[in-house]
């Protein structure tokens, strides 16, 4: 492409061509969903097993979470630096998850002072994140995963004891792990058809 004068039809063609090029690449963001999906489900199931084996202080399994947050931030910064472009969608998704990340810290912090069902609120936040991301990138499995979380955040209030941990694990499997797998497959398919 050169710096030359064009006519009106060429102008429209260039605008259309550039808009199409910006749509060409979809980004594989399944890594974050896998990371958190496996971390939360492994912690929840491990704590459940430990409780069933009558261990005490099982809550320490959740110390993996701050470590995961550090790893997440590190990967995000690295990806941001090497990214060739940032779309409006990327910015919107990033903003949603930043707000949810802050909400997670507030809710977990509050749970030490105020009595409420922490897991119910966490599942609700998972649902909001996946549902919104699914709507933005128009990916149905994420929207469905979000809907499953909306149901589970209500259902968990009618279940007592350690079994709540299994509901928590189920929520991240439905909202993070399964959609992440499908997102990755979709990305691979997109790449192979683009070649």
């Amino acid at each position: 492409m050169k710096d030359q004068i064009i006519n009106e039809h060429e102008s429209l063609a260039i605008i259309q061509q550039m808009i199409d090029k910006s749509k060409e690449r979809i980004v594989d963001n399944s890594l974050y969903f896998y990371m958190w999906g496996f971390a939360v489900s492994i912690c929840a199931i491990t704590q459940y097993i430990l409780l069933k084996m009558l261990f005490t202080r099982t809550q320490y399994v959740w110390l993996l979470m701050p470590f995961m947050a550090i790893v997440h931030v590190w990967i995000a910064i690295k990806r941001e630096k090497t990214a060739l472009r940032k779309t409006h969608h990327d910015f919107a998704i990033q903003s949603v998850w930043m707000a949810l990340g802050i909400a997670f810290f507030i809710i977990v912090g509050l749970s030490f002072q105020v009595s409420f069902n922490l897991f119910s609120f966490l599942i609700l936040l998972y649902g909001i994140g996946t549902f919104t991301t699914g709507r933005i990138i128009q990916f149905t499995p994420l929207i469905m995963g979000g809907c499953v979380c909306f149901i589970l955040c209500v259902l968990i209030n009618f279940i007592d004891g350690p079994e709540q941990l299994l509901i928590l694990a189920l929520s991240v499997i439905a909202a993070y792990i399964i959609p992440a797998y499908l997102l990755q497959q979709d990305f691979k398919k997109h790449i192979s058809t683009a070649k």
Binding site: M1, K2, D3, Q4, I5, I6, E10, S11, I14, I15, Q17, M18, I19, K21, S22, K23, A83, L84, R85, K86, T87, H88, D90, F91
Partner: peptide
Amino acid sequence: HSQLRLAIVSLLVSVKEAD
């Protein structure tokens, strides 16, 4: 109203920022 500058601006309108 020049081929390359229009292409650059059209691209930057579509994405938030680009390398």
